[in-house]
Structure formats: structure tokens, C-alpha cells
Design a protein around this nucleic acid. Sequence first.
DNA 1: TACATATGTAAGGAAATCTAACATTGTATT
DNA 2: AATACAATGTTAGATTTCCTTACATATGTA
Lengths: 99, 99
Amino acid sequence: MSYKHKKVISIGTVNELTGLSLRQIRYYEERGLIYPERTKRGTRKYSFSDVETLLQIADKREEGVQTYEIRRDLQDTKKGKVMERMLRGQLNAHFKLNK
Amino acid sequence: MSYKHKKVISIGTVNELTGLSLRQIRYYEERGLIYPERTKRGTRKYSFSDVETLLQIADKREEGVQTYEIRRDLQDTKKGKVMERMLRGQLNAHFKLNK
DNA sequence: TACATATGTAAGGAAATCTAACATTGTATT
DNA sequence: AATACAATGTTAGATTTCCTTACATATGTA
């Protein structure tokens, strides 16, 4: 897994990187927008990818978009990315789309 | 700056990633092998690049190499990398090596 | 009005980190 | 042999960070 997706950043640092409050960061998890991992003892760990997502969320929220819609958009984006890869043929081995 | 060099990882996570004890991680800093940043309140933050360096250090230590030699090697490596880039021409604008 | 959303804040507890000091073991120097 | 330095462990006390839960509040929506 790349550095971008490895979950190693604790919530205080995410707060500094994004400007979002701890409350907000945890709440967006509760609403299913992000999925940090937990250490054995329960502390949350985020990836750079999560940080990027949170920055997008912050933008959307400023526009007044609700978490429910943001979640939908994020899922669409993910699907979009998967589709791109499929079209590029990188998932052929799994899904046997060609031939 | 890239994700690889951004200092966002706390020492406990570095311990998990490298298998080195907290004591060792701090000691290698004391010996000038790595340079974590500090938050306002004093907690150390490491980059993925630091983690890579620490893995190299761990290897060298197992071979019995002492920290002062490792430091020298690491510095050489850095110089080596800079030279590579210079030869690739990426620093021309700065050093005007060609023409 | 009643309910849901989004966020702040407070409290109490548990986990993580910091520094400093002392102990130990091995290797090198005198 | 005695001394010194290197590398690491361990302990202790203090500070910081993080966790959950609960209550408050403002704003929008059914």
C-alpha cells in the first residue's frame, strides 16, 4: 500500500492539516464519510487520503452541502475511479471484461 | 512537499512500523541520524522518509555498524542523490552546469 | 411544534509522549 | 585491569493527547 493510503496520522495532526475540529472529524466518521483505523488501544489513525477527503468535505460544508449528500458524492467519486481503472483494463484479470 | 517527507507520524506508530524501541528511535535522533520535527508542545513527528531511514539503520545495526558510521553513510547517500539529480539536469536552473 | 443536523464544550479516564536518571553489557582505549 | 564510550533497557513523574458520553445550541426541515 502506498504512503497515501497508509493509516498513520493521529487525530490531532489531522486537525492541524485540515483546520477541522476534533468534533467535526469524529462526526464525519460517524456519518460514514471517512473510515479511520483504530490501534489496539482504540486511538484513530488516518491516511493522507483521508486528509484529502476531509478537505473536500470542508469545502462542501462551506457550500452548505449536508453530510448525507457528501457521502453520496464521495461514493460516486470512488465508483468513478474504479470505473476508470476498469476501462483502462487494469481489472481485466478480475472481471474478464475483454474477450 | 510530498507525503513521503511530511512529518506527521508519532513515535508510537514509528515503533510499530519499524520494530525499533522508543529508546532506540530517540537515541538515533540524539546521534544525528534522523531529524523529526516537534509540535508546539514538544511531541516528535516523523515522515515516511524517516521511517525508511530507520529501517536502514536497523539493518546496519544488526550488521554491527555503529551510529557514527551510519550517519556518515546516510550523508553520503544524500549527497549521492543530489548529484544524481544534478547530472540528470534537474538543478540546471540553480547551478547552471550546462552551457 | 417536533425532529434532525452540525457543532461546541465539559468531565473523567485512559493512553501516549516527554525528560532525566540510573543500570547493564559490550567494546575500545590507556 | 581500569576507564571510557556506545547502545539499550527500565523506571518515575509530569504533561499531552485521545477516548467516550452527555448536555447545550443554533439552524433548518417535516
